[in-house]
Each structure stands twice: as C-alpha cells, then as structure tokens.
Design a protein around this nucleic acid. Structure first.
Lengths: 326, 326
DNA sequence: CTGGATTTTGGTATCGGTAACAATACTATT
DNA sequence: AATAGTATTGTTACCGATACCAAAATCCAG
C-alpha cells in the first residue's frame, strides 16, 4: 500500500488517522492509492501497536430479553458515532459464566466493559481491577460498585410503586418478581416492597410474595394462585417485565375486574401496557438513557482520560405512570 | 511471561493453544506461571500473527426489535461454544450505513459476517467478495445471494397465509406490512400476498393494501382505517410483528367481533398472540433456528474450510398456526 | 540571504503473538 | 548399540500497524 502511493507506511498511517499532520498533496496521493487498491487498514494491527482499541464489551444476562434491547440501542448509537464497536455476550445469569466472558473480552483488549449484572465473582472483580479498564454496571445500583454505575435503583422503584398502591388504599398487596438467585435486581425489588409495607404499616404475608419465571404464562399463573389462595388480596404488583400482561389476561379470562376485584401494577413500561384495557399502571424506566449515558461516560474515560469520573454513580430517574389498572 | 516459566514464548503459545503438543511437565510449568502472574494472552496479537480471528460481525437493521433477538441468541449460543465472539451493529435499514459497517467489520478482520438485510450496495458486495470471508444473509431468501443464506422465504410465508385465509372462505383480504423501501422482506411479503390473491381468483384492491410503521399504535390505526374505508373487508393479514396485536385491541375497543366482523392473521409467533383473546392465527417462523444454523454453517466454513458450502441456501420451514381469530 | 524554528516525511524498533523450520531429546527397531 | 523416526523445545522472521526520534523540506525574521 505504502509502495503504491510511493510514500512511507508512516505517512499512510498519518494521512488516514491524522490528516492534519500531512500535506495536502500527500493526503490526496495516499487517498487515491487507497481507493485504487481498495486498501483496508488492519484494525487489529493498529490496536496492537497503539495499545488502544475501539471495542467495548457488553455482557447481559440474556440477549432475548426485550428489556435490554433499548439499553443496547442507546449504547450502540453513541458508540457508533465515535467509531467504537460493541461486542456482546450473554452470561445466562451465571457469575462464573460472566467471569469467563470478562476474561475473553479482556484478552480481546476491549477498552471498556458494560455489565448488566452487579453480582460478580471475586476473581472477575480482580481481573477487571488489574486490567485497569473502565467499567460500567447498569442493571442496578450496587452497594459496592466495581467502578462506575449508570442505572436506576430497583429498590427505590419498587418502593415507590408499593407506596403508590398503599396510598391508593390497597391493603393486601401481593408481590411477584423473577427468581432472585443471582439476580440482585430481583432482590432489591423485594426489599423495596418490604420497606414500603413497613412504611405503610402493613403486615408482610409470605403467601402473597412469589417468585416466578419470565413470560405471560408465568404472570397468569401467579395471578390465579394469589387470588385463589388468599382471596382478600386487593392488589398485585408484578415486578418483572411481562408478568403483568399475563396476569391481566388471566383476570380477563376469569372475569375478575381490574381494578375492581384486584388492582394491577407492573414494573417496566412495555408499549403493551398502555394499549391493553384496562391500561396498566407501571414504572417508566430510563432504559435507553442508561445505554446512552453509559456509552458517554465510558467514552469520556477512554478518550479524554477523565479520571475524575472513576467510581461515579449515576442514578437515573424513573417515573411512575398511573393508569386505569390501579 | 515466558521468562517467568523459564521457557520460550513458543512453548507458552503451544501449552495454551495446543496442549497436546507439549509435555506434561511443560504444560504444568506454564499453567502455573500463567496463574501466578495472571497472564492474559493478547488476542489481537494472536489474530494478527495467525491471520485468523474469532469474531463474527452481525448487522441488523435495528437492535431494538424483538424479532431479531431470538436469532441473535441462536447465533450467540453456538458461537460461544466455539469460542467465537459476536460484534453487533445496526444499519437502520440503510444500505449505505450497512456498507460503512461492513467496512469497519472487515478492518476488524472478522472471520465471518451475518447480514439480516439482503439489499446491499454494489460496493459492499464487492468489498465482501474481495475479502473472501464467508457471509450469511438471513432475513430473507434473496434472488442473488452474496454467498450463503439461512432463512425462511417471506414470499412463501405470506403466500401461505393468504391462501389459508382464502381457503377459509374470506374474500376481501386486507394486507398490512411495514414500509417496503429498502426492505425486501416487506416487498416479498407483498408479492406473496398478491400471488395468492391471483391463485384464489380474488381481485387486488389497493385501498386495502397498506404500509405502516412498527408498533401497536400503527396496527390499531391500520385496522380502523381499513374497516372504515372499505366496510366489506372480511379479513386483515398483518405482515409485520406486533401490528396484529394493535389491530386486535382496536377491534376490542370498537366492539368488532374477531373473526365475526373481521378475521385477523399475523406474521410472527410472538408469545402474546397465543394469550390474547381471541388467540391469533399466525406463522411460526424459525427465528432461533436461523441463528443456530447460521452460526453452524459459518463455523464450518471458517474452521473446517468447508468450501462446498459456499453459496448454499438453507430454506428453513415455517409453520402456520390456525387459532381463533380466523 | 542565512540561520534557526517549524512543518513534513521517513527510518527503525516494537506491540505480543504464531508460522516455519531447526535443533535437541527421546523411542523404537533391527 | 547404532540408526532412523518421533516427540518436544527453541530460533528467527514476520503479521501490519504506531511511537519515537531523526532527517529533510519549508518558512520566517533579522
């Protein structure tokens, strides 16, 4: 390539990456040669040599979860505009798997990491610390962040919704969440719920606090179980994406009025919740913003070396949307 | 690192990558040293040197589309088990953007590409050809594949559903799809629909053939528009993910019996369609399988050099699921 | 017009591995 | 025991870029 333009490789490199440092004439000569032979710089070589890479590693618990896609989009759009690339992998909610993936990403020399989970093996934390690259956790606000955090607080959100139900006068509030093993988001939601119950002066009742899997069917099943086993229940707070929709369908099927027989609240603002009838009260979480902010803060660290951002925690606001179901 | 174990770098490389070619003792010595100093091989250097990489580039039109997530999951799971990494980017349905991304991926020296779109700029096609890496297109079955294809046929699927409606006795079948500019999936669906109409001996009516955007609201709007502007319509085929759900909600809101007043069919087997009432007739598309097969066929080409697979087209079957709505 | 400052270009070492071949150690065979 | 053959380890030359510093070209002031 350098030969084709009749210049040194160094000049080619500069013409392509620091056009300002090269004369008009050289720049044109190089660019013409680039077009003629269809030259494609080898990014691997560049990264190796400069010890800088333009890839960011992202680890989500499960790719086929619509919850994350908004965040990924936010990430992706910002990163793209800075010429960064996204490597994605899924950990399957398993910290060991996550550690393994972190290792792989580090050996690919990603220049930043985004982790949805906030539960990690000690070895994973150690590897990250040792690598020195910036990391953002963004599924929750952990007690002991690895580095930076961009998220909303699952605890606060769950607390807020439970308080909302309490203030509306519901006294027997059931709670359904996703399995909480290796899922601190679920754990925090549960704690937020309990904290709100205390605040409201309501007694917790283990019979109406359930954990289940994802999906409409699971939501439906939870609704049926709760109402039948504890008839005096007057509200159900589904703290896991599509559970509420399943629960609502179950009510429609059984002829239970919502909110007449039982009120229903959800945790994430899926488009659907606004369109069903009754529309469902829920929390609007800043999924896209999380991705966007995560990308920005990472890029600041990587490109501008903004060390003052190290360890910063961005608690993005959520919003409670009151609708017909409560 | 090599020094730490007191061996040559070559032996380290072998101990880690071809353990069989190294003596028991050396392997242990190296592995111990690796653990002691927490050595992480530099994958960039390895790829550069060996001229092989373990990354696959994936370009989807839009990341926040639940349709793709299943495919991504299939891809991801197979690739992971072979130690390959996935780089994801979104083209925003724009071929020029896609070309740009292809260029970036090629300069990252991905060892394979997966493209959801089947419409590309000539330059993109040329770059890919020149690079010599295997490519799989998987959003549709194109007339002129770049290389390999793993997909179902949008034409066939649309044809099948329309024929199904016709056989059930519906005579005035409306059709809604996503905007077809730069979207050959939409174009093919439309053609399949028209082909079926001809086969059924029905006259096409431009008033009931619509294009719209994604989303529940769009589906609702289409339903309202079709029924009001052409009252004699007796079926609506929504050939775009969630449109049908929006359409159904609109019917429920207006009190139009489904399928009494109008029958409703959808195009993708979203979980939701089975749980709403009436449940919605739809096509079950092999989204996950597409990802899985795509990964397998790519890996065969990359790792086993299976040149006989070049240009192969895998037409995965879809399934028509008759439910209450038709 | 000349010397020094500045800009532009090039030479060389290096990033951290692997390929290819050479050298050495070990096994088996006659 | 000698020799051929195989298994193991090492040497050297890259892979394709960038960093760093030196050299050449250009500019400007006195």
């Amino acid at each position: 390539m350098a030969a084709r333009a009749g210049v040194s490789t160094m000049t080619v490199s500069r013409a392509l990456n620091e056009p300002g440092k090269v004369s008009e004439e050289m720049r044109e000569r190089v660019l013409r040669a680039v077009r003629e032979i269809g030259y494609l710089p080898n990014h691997l070589a560049g990264s190796l040599s400069s010890n800088r890479s333009t890839t960011i590693g992202l680890i989500v618990p499960s790719i086929d979860n619509s919850i994350y896609t908004q965040t990924v989009k936010g990430l992706s759009e910002v990163l793209k505009s800075s010429g960064f690339q996204l490597m994605i992998a899924e950990s399957g909610y398993d910290p060991n798997e996550e550690e393994e993936l972190i290792t792989v990403f580090l050996s690919h020399r990603v220049s930043g990491l985004v982790l949805h989970s906030t539960e990690h093996t000690p070895q994973a934390a150690e590897k990250i610390r040792k690598s020195g690259i910036p990391v953002v956790e963004n599924g929750n606000i952990p007690r002991e962040p690895l580095d930076m955090v961009v998220s909303f607080s699952n605890y606060d959100a769950s607390y807020a919704m439970t308080m909302h139900l309490g203030r509306l006068g519901y006294r027997k509030i059931a709670f359904a969440s996703l399995y909480s093993v290796h899922n601190d988001r679920s754990q925090d939601r549960l704690q937020g719920y309990h904290a709100a119950l205390r605040q409201l002066g309501l007694d917790p009742d283990p019979r109406i606090v359930l954990e289940t899997e994802r999906g409409l069917a699971a939501g439906a099943e939870v609704m049926a179980r709760v109402v039948q086993s504890v008839p005096e229940v007057d509200a159900l707070f589904c703290a896991g994406d599509v559970l509420a929709v399943g629960a609502l369908f179950e009510c429609q099927k059984r002829g239970w009025k919502v909110p007449g027989r039982i009120a229903l609240a959800s945790f994430d603002d899926v488009d659907l919740l606004r369109h069903v009838s009754p529309s469902v009260t829920t929390l609007r979480l800043p999924r896209y913003d999380i991705g966007e902010r995560t990308a920005r803060i990472l890029l600041s660290r990587i490109m501008d070396g903004a060390e003052h951002l190290r360890g910063s925690v961005v608690d993005l606001k959520f919003e409670l949307i009151q609708r017909e179901s409560t």
